[in-house]
Amino acid sequence: MGITAKSVLIVDDEHDIRRFLSTILEDEGYHTTTACDGEQALQLLETLLPDLITLDVAMPNKSGVGTYRAIRGNRALAHIPVILITGVAPEFQEFISTRRQVPPPDGYLPKPVNPAELVALVERLLA
């Protein structure tokens, strides 16, 4: 019986970053789906249940923070580990991590993304 590959939803408004992250993870055997903003991500999540989500913070249409709240507020999705990927100042990360209304994300990765760090974090969260 074959092991189904774990799936990751990659959400980022920049095409090159989506391609970069999906290539890294696909090379490690993960199956990836991409969304170019929070709106598209939430639409996909109506029918898709990934094992993990990577989420860019600063995006147009629906910001990463707004998307993150929506995911955590949805009972069907709340259990999915989320990694926030952000190039915004560390203060913003501090702000997010201290907010009490939603649980903090499962991990942060700064931009530029280090492939080895991404893989290690995903493996740890999906172990």
Binding site: D16, I17, T23, A58, P112, V113, P115
Partner: peptide, 15 residues
């Protein structure tokens, strides 16, 4: 933030 995005894109390309 913009530069970090572009550097990630460059990293992606080289990867």
């Amino acid at each position: 933030h913009g530069i970090k995005g572009m550097l990630t894109g460059l990293d992606g390309g080289t990867y």
